[in-house]
Amino acid sequence: MKKILVLLLLAVVGFYTAETFFDIGFGKAPFVKSSEIKPVKDVYLHQTVQELKVANAVTSIVVNFRGFDTLGEVTVLFLSVTALGSILYKKRHHVGERSVLFSASSIVTSGSKLLFPAIVLLGAYVFIHGHLSPGGGFQGGVIIATGFLLMLLAYENYSVSHKGLAIVESLAGITFAGVGLLGFMNGGTFLQNFLATGTLNDLFSGGIIPIIYIAVGFKVAAELTGVIYTVLNEKGEQHG
């Protein structure tokens, strides 16, 4: 009975959603009423090239036009890490000791030791070149966290220093907020650009955008490594 009711509800929701998107159409240019009003997209794309000198438009939107959103997002991520730690808290008898079913073979351990620097280097490359090519702070941070995950899975006594994670994360957060506040000192708004923008498609271009994205990369990497480490150290009542 409940299933029928749910299916009926979902059919109604699905029908109206599908109808709405059918009216919008797939792959068309946005509909504009008069020639005086430009879509937001055109303004952003124009300013990205002309004023900010950033090659990747998604980066310029995430860091500059919607930079305040990104600050909020990083805060939400920080809050979720805090919530995870406090929900899973218990008075542990063996701190830092993980339950493993069987230890990894020597092929896995030496292979992951070989791969780990390469993964971290790839992550750093991705967030340093965030304003030139696809990628950025979030992607690079996640890639670095994946490298730490590999090490944590391969070595059963590999541990990440919580104090180090906290320091990296706080410094990155302070850099983000501080660079944003420096915009006020130059008579502008929060996250206003105050450095020279350089030329398009140059590594040192875009003013403060690469600095902020590097800070975001470090912050995301530290936070996600903290999430994985906390959950991996969770030890249920084991039965095998």
Partner: peptide, 29 residues
Amino acid sequence: MVDPIPQALVLTAIVIGFGVTAVALSLVI
């Protein structure tokens, strides 16, 4: 060019979604 604004929004949404999933799973544990 493809519209970059939805892409920027989804970039945010994916990372937040991971945080939400992690908190939900910790509640499950």
